[in-house]
């Protein structure tokens, strides 16, 4: 099972991220779990699980919201549109797993 995480923040994130998460859940039903991590502010990482912070360490994150697949940042700052995101995620799922 793949893991998709959407990190969002109330300050400058996507107010409709819930609809995007539902869309991904529909599209990747049985293939991936989709979780939304909602931060209070753009710098308040308290809501981000420590394990995810560890996975994200060293990766380029240029802004919120962030789209993460299996610990790998696929996009940050703006989300791809829904059609593009499906292609991006599907391609990334097929790519070899990231090694630590």
């Amino acid at each position: 099972m793949h893991e998709i995480v959407l990190i969002n923040a109330r300050c400058e994130g996507d107010p409709e991220i819930g609809k995007f998460a539902d869309f991904l859940r529909r599209k990747f039903e049985g293939q991936a779990q989709v979780e939304v991590v909602e931060m209070e502010t753009c710098t308040d990482y308290a809501a981000v699980p420590p394990a995810l912070i560890e996975q994200l360490a060293g990766q380029q994150i240029d802004g919120i919201p962030v789209l993460v697949l299996n610990g790998r940042v696929l996009s940050a700052g703006t989300l791809p549109n829904w059609m593009d995101s499906l292609e991006t995620i599907t391609a990334a799922m097929r790519a070899p797993a990231r090694t630590a």
């Binding site: 869309f23 549109n81 829904w82 593009d84």
Partner: peptide
Amino acid sequence: ANVPPDEVGRMLNER
């Protein structure tokens, strides 16, 4: 239904 209008506009533009 279930798609924000901005997202529809964005897909129409980008795709």
